Simulated assay, not measured.
Amino acid sequence: MSTPSDVTFQTLSARGGFKIGLVSLNRDRAMNALTQEMIQAIGRRLARWQQSKRIVAVVIRGEGRCFSSGGDIRQLYDGIACADANGLKRADQFFELEYKTNIQLHRFTKPLIAWGHGYVMGGGLGLFLTANHRIGTESMQLAWPEVRIGLFPDVLGTWYLSRIDSALGHWMGLTGVPVTSTDALSQHLIDYQLADGDLEAMIGQLRQLSWSSRTPDNQLLVRTLLSRLQSQSAVTAPASDWQRTQSVITTMMEPVIRQGKVALPAANPYQDDWIQRGLTQHHAGCPASARLVVEQLAAGWRMSLVEAARLELAMAWQACRHPDLVEGIRALLIERGSTPRWQHATPASVPDDWIKALMASPWERQHHPFADL
């Protein structure tokens, strides 16, 4: 459960009598995993700050080792594992709140600056990507790791992974392997690359900007400042895993993209550590999730953000009622080190009807919880 201090909100004085909002995720002991209560508090506070004439910009950061390792899947597991209507209702509410907050923050018009260091994954990545100014540091590890727990790349992964390089998008979704800030920058998943130690200096310089009551002018101020800080930063940019392995992964992903055939090799003949890590995670992951990735990305590039959120909410509703998700969380978190007993042995053995069921909406279009978004 959350405590009131798991997420804190401050206002920092800035020039001209304006203020900068500061959101801090404070669950370092849990790698800043987001609970339902934290997500709700962030959504409510930013709705207030959107309306405030004094708040000109907002910074979101994670205290301690990382920005956020994801959603609190133990909290999710407790709901699903109850196997009763109330437990499933709590799980449904978690996903509905999470995705709806993602859309809300995407529509935040003021400068929203996210500081991405350490793990930026899963639900935490969904929060990070809502910002209109996204900063990655040399320690960033950005990933959608849901294949490992029998879910799917959510928090608008449908939209984002279908808009980066196709081979890399499929690779990230099928393996859950993280990318560094260097590759995130090349794929426009972040906007700026700074050093881990630049945070306080950045906040200090934000407070000294010549703010005004005009949001477009303030957006330009922030872009100019962050571009300048990037050019001046002493950041040691990580090497690009993608540039080194692009030709190998592109060849590997070709039958996946063209034919929907998910049959990745168990070993990499080039003996590249990053590729081997991805292959290992893929083969340990959920076969049905791997099939879902292909379907998601085939549909995602034609969708708006809201349409992607509607699809993902239906898929999350179904995942909570299919056995792989609770089994994946059990093996990864509840009984650490145990081998998950997936419903299917390989992606090829997953029936088409199973995938259709996992993607079927339980609501008529006009009754979808996001029908009014």
Rank of each mutant, 00 (worst) to 15 (best):
A81Q: 14
A81G: 06
C82M: 13
D84Y: 00
A85W: 04
N86Q: 08
N86S: 10
N86P: 07
G87Q: 15
K89V: 14
A91M: 10
Q93W: 10
Q93A: 12
F94R: 07
F95P: 14
E96L: 15
E96W: 14
E98L: 11
K100I: 04
T101L: 07
I103F: 11
Q104E: 07
Q104H: 09
Q104S: 01
L105R: 15
H106Q: 11
T109D: 03
T109S: 13
T109H: 01
T109F: 07
P111T: 14
P111C: 13
P111Q: 14
I113C: 05
I113A: 00
I113L: 06
A114D: 03
A114R: 02
A114M: 06
W115I: 14
G116Y: 00
G116V: 01
G116L: 07
G116N: 05
H117G: 09
H117D: 01
G118L: 08
G118V: 06
G118F: 03
G118Y: 01
Y119F: 02
Y119A: 01
V120H: 02
M121S: 05
G123K: 03
G123E: 06
G123H: 03
G124W: 07
L127T: 00
L127M: 13
L127V: 09
F128D: 01
L129D: 10
L129W: 12
T130D: 04
N132I: 14
N132Y: 03
R134Q: 11
I135H: 00
G136S: 15
G136T: 12
T137R: 05
E138Y: 04
S139N: 02
S139M: 06
M140S: 09
Q141M: 12
Q141N: 13
Q141L: 13
W144A: 03
P145C: 09
E146H: 01
V147D: 06
R148G: 04
R148S: 08
R148W: 05
I149V: 13
G150V: 02
G150Y: 02
L151R: 00
L151T: 10
F152D: 03
D154Y: 15
D154N: 15
L156W: 11
L156R: 08
L156T: 15
G157Y: 13
T158E: 14
T158Q: 06
W159T: 08
W159I: 09
L161P: 05
R163A: 04
I164D: 05
I164G: 02
D165T: 06
A167V: 08
A167S: 14
L168V: 12
L168D: 04
L168R: 11
G169C: 12
G169W: 08
W171Y: 11
W171K: 06
W171R: 05
W171E: 01
M172S: 03
M172L: 14
G173M: 12
G173Q: 10
L174A: 04
T175E: 05
